[in-house]
Design a protein around this nucleic acid. Structure first.
Lengths: 234, 234
DNA sequence: GGAATAGTGTCTGTTAGACACTATCTA
DNA sequence: TAGATAGTGTCTAACAGACACTATTCC
C-alpha cells in the first residue's frame, strides 16, 4: 500500500443532519390545524460550544457511508430513525471548528408530520419552530437565535431551508413531510408553511402528480377532502 | 484539546474537479463554428488505476478550503487556472478507492471557450469530447469509454453533466462557457451542444437576462449578430 | 342556516413551441 | 443573386394569478 495518505495530515469528517418536520396542532373540528416548520436540535455537553444547541451529527466511521453515519448518529443521540434523507452540501471552512480541521458533509432530513423519537437519545434534544431568525422550543417559552447555534450550524440550517424552498415545486421533496396518503389541502398548507406565503390554485398545480386513493377525510365541519398519494414518475 | 479526533480513524479527503469547456472549431466565413462539450482528463502515473484517465484532483491540505485545493491541484497537475467553480457533490462510497477510505468532494469547473493551459502541468492531460458513452481525445483518433475511467470518476462526470443540464436554464451557469461579451446565437449553440438538442425561440427566452454592449460581430457572410453581456441580477 | 373549508369555473396575462417571414452580410 | 445566419411576427396551446362561485360537512 502506498504511503501517500500519510504525507498529508488528514482532516476529520463529520456527518451532520438538519432534520425537519411539520408540527401539526389540531384546533377544533371546525378549523384547520395550525402548522409550523421545525428543526431538531441537540444540546452539546462537551467543549467546544459546550451547552450550545447544534444539529445532530458525528464523526464518520472508516467503513461507513457518510449517510449511514448520519443516520446512526441521529438514532444514537436523539432517538430518531426512518426519515427521508438527501445530501445538502459539504461545509469546509478551515476554522469552522476551533480544535482541528473538521469538514462536515450535511444532509437534509425530513420526518413525517409529528414524527416522534422512537427511543431516548443520549443527548438532550428537542424540536424548534423556525420563525425568522428565532427558534422557538417546542411546547416551551424558550427562544434561541440562529446566531446562538454551535459552529457554523446557523449557516447550515439556513442553506438547508433555502434548498428546500428552491426545489419544493419541481421535485418530490415536499411529499416527504406528509404521510403516504394525504389531502391536497394538507399538502398546500405544508407548502405554505415552508414558503411562508399563501398559494392559490394549488389543486390544479399538483393534481397531475397525484393519484386518488379512493379514501376521504371525514369528521370535520366542512366538505371532506379526498386522499391522494404521490404518483410514481417514469 | 479534546482527544476525540483520535478515537476515530480518519478518512482521507480529496478535491476533484470536472473541468468542462466548449471547443469551438471555425469552419469558414460562411458557416457557424462547430462546438463540442469537452472535459479535461489527466493520465494517472501511479497505482491504483495506473495509466487510467481520471479527473484532476488531490488530497486536501489541512489549512485550505477544498475549493482552494481543487484549484491548486488543477494548476499544478494540468496547468489551468482562472475558471469558474462550484461544488457538485461529495462522493463517499467506502470502497471507491481500494487502498484506503477516501472521500471526494467534487467540483464543477467551467473554462471559457478554447481555454488553454497557462503552463505545463506535471501530469499528462488533455481535453476529451463527450459523445454518449465515449470520450474522444482532442485532435486525435483515440477513443476511451466512461467505463475505462479511474475510480468512480465516470459517475462523477455524469453527475456533473446532469447537474449542468438541469440548471442551465434557470441559473447563470451557461454564461460561464462564453466570454464576457457574446452573441445570442453563440450562447444558443453552446446550450444546444450541452443539452444535445435544438432550441427554438432562444432569443426571446434569454434577452431579458442580457444587455447589449453596442458591439457586433462582423466579417461573416450573413447578417451580423449583436454582442451582449450578462445582466446583473438583483 | 351559519361557519368553515374543498374544490371548480372563468377570465386575463404570460410563456413555450412551431414555424413563417424579414434583415443583413460575403462571395 | 445565392447562401447563410440573425432576428422578428404570429398563431396556438399551456400555464399562473386572481378571484368568484358551488359543494359538502357539522353544529
Amino acid at each position: 500500500m502506498s504511503n501517500t495518505f500519510f504525507e498529508y495530515e488528514r482532516p476529520s469528517v463529520t456527518a451532520d443532519v438538519v432534520l425537519f418536520r411539520i408540527k401539526e396542532t389540531p384546533i377544533s373540528n371546525r378549523q384547520t390545524a395550525k402548522k409550523e416548520l421545525q428543526v431538531l436540535l441537540m444540546k452539546r455537553n462537551t467543549a467546544p460550544c459546550n451547552n450550545q444547541w447544534s444539529i445532530p451529527g458525528g464523526f464518520v466511521n472508516i467503513d461507513e457511508t457518510i449517510e449511514d453515519t448520519a443516520k446512526a448518529k441521529m438514532l444514537e443521540k436523539c432517538g430518531y430513525k426512518d426519515f427521508y434523507m438527501e445530501q445538502l452540501y459539504t461545509f469546509d471552512a478551515p476554522q469552522r471548528d476551533e480544535r482541528w480541521r473538521v469538514i462536515s458533509t450535511a444532509y437534509i432530513g425530513i420526518a413525517k408530520k409529528n414524527h416522534n423519537a422512537i427511543q431516548e437519545g443520549i443527548m438532550e434534544n428537542d424540536w424548534f419552530t423556525i420563525i425568522g431568525s428565532e427558534l422557538h422550543k417546542n411546547d416551551s417559552d424558550e427562544i434561541i437565535y440562529f446566531s446562538d447555534l454551535a459552529f457554523d450550524h446557523a449557516n447550515i440550517i439556513q442553506t438547508a431551508i433555502e434548498r428546500i424552498k428552491n426545489k419544493i415545486f419541481y421535485s418530490d421533496i415536499g411529499f416527504e413531510f406528509e404521510d403516504a396518503e394525504f389531502t391536497i389541502p394538507s399538502l398546500r398548507t405544508t407548502f405554505e408553511t415552508i414558503l411562508e406565503k399563501k398559494i392559490d390554485n394549488f389543486q390544479r398545480i399538483m393534481i397531475g402528480r397525484l393519484e386518488k386513493t379512493g379514501n376521504m377525510v371525514t369528521g370535520k365541519a366542512h366538505r371532506p377532502a379526498e386522499l391522494y398519494r404521490k404518483r410514481l414518475r417514469k
